[in-house]
Nucleic acid binder design. Structure first.
Ligand SMILES: [Mn+2]
Ligand SMILES: [Mn+2]
Ligand SMILES: [Zn+2]
Ligand SMILES: [Zn+2]
Lengths: 141, 141
DNA sequence: TCAATAGTTTAGAATGGTTTTAAATTCTGA
DNA sequence: TCAGAATTTAAAACCATTCTAAACTATTGA
């Protein structure tokens, strides 16, 4: 009934990553405030602001290690910047083009049907749906 | 009954772009061999190979102009590289992770249902479905 | 036909998120 | 406590893409 990884230390143990000061700090920032879609430089900024100095290289290393461990999911929508999603359950996204924000679409509200099976010898690893949203229909001219 | 833009010149006229040597060459490479998903540097390579020298800057300019004119669609799947799709009809994609190739999924075979309407004042511009395919299920251990 | 003008192309430099490097530091188990 | 392995880091490298500004070209109306 409790959240899967109540504390950062337990989470790192499960991922078989040494609980260093830096990884603990990043894990807390990532997982202690609900679902997030965060870019590397954004997280780096948060760490510095929280008086937890971490190099940008370590932020990238850690994010990729977390993805490898299944703790994060990497999402690419625009060229030149990746988002890291703390929600690794099956779900899809709204993408707000005006401010480049991602928002979850609950997994059970949306459904993709009749996906053809991929040609010969391929297997489906994942289906990603991105609903691109623009701020508002333009009124008048 | 003929294809929408039988020749490159007509296509550029419809897009209100001057029919320069470079744009004609790129339009031919893009549209005279069926549906394609091509990256900028790839197209640049093809132009050089076909003895139609064009600078890389012009390739980028032209691709973006074609997107603006609705002749191409830009697709972002992996960080660091955009694909340009000559199929601008409503359709979705297989993405083969092993060789980073895109393949069309015919538009009517797949369906996305129950897309919630976006919160307050947003309108849906497009829904993109990407089915990520890995080469094969691993046999044995 | 021929400027004048607006649009286009280009080489090269700049950009910027990400990755790499290699040296210093820290963690772990014995 | 110590050696070996893993980690962190500043700085440089990477690389697709964008920008710059100067040269070139297409268009048009005299
Ligand atoms: Mn990555
Ligand atoms: Mn673009
Ligand atoms: Zn999400
Ligand atoms: Zn396509």
């Amino acid at each position: 009934m409790t959240r899967p990884f109540a504390n950062a230390l337990e989470l790192l143990r499960a991922a078989r990553l040494r609980p260093t000061r830096q990884r603990l700090a990043l894990a807390r920032l990532l997982f202690e405030k609900g679902d997030r879609h965060v870019a590397a430089e954004e997280l780096h900024g948060e760490a510095l602001a929280a008086q937890m100095p971490v190099s940008l290289a370590t932020v990238y290393n850690t994010l990729h290690q977390f993805v490898g461990a299944g703790l994060l999911r990497e999402i690419v929508i625009n060229p030149g910047r990746s988002y890291f999603d703390t929600n690794v359950s099956d779900h899809h996204h709204f993408f707000y083009e005006d401010d480049s924000q991602l928002r979850d679409i609950p997994g059970d509200s949306i459904a993709v049907s009749n996906v053809p099976s991929p040609p010969e010898g391929g297997s489906i690893r994942r289906v990603d749906v991105v609903v691109r949203v623009e701020k508002a229909a333009h009124k008048g001219r």
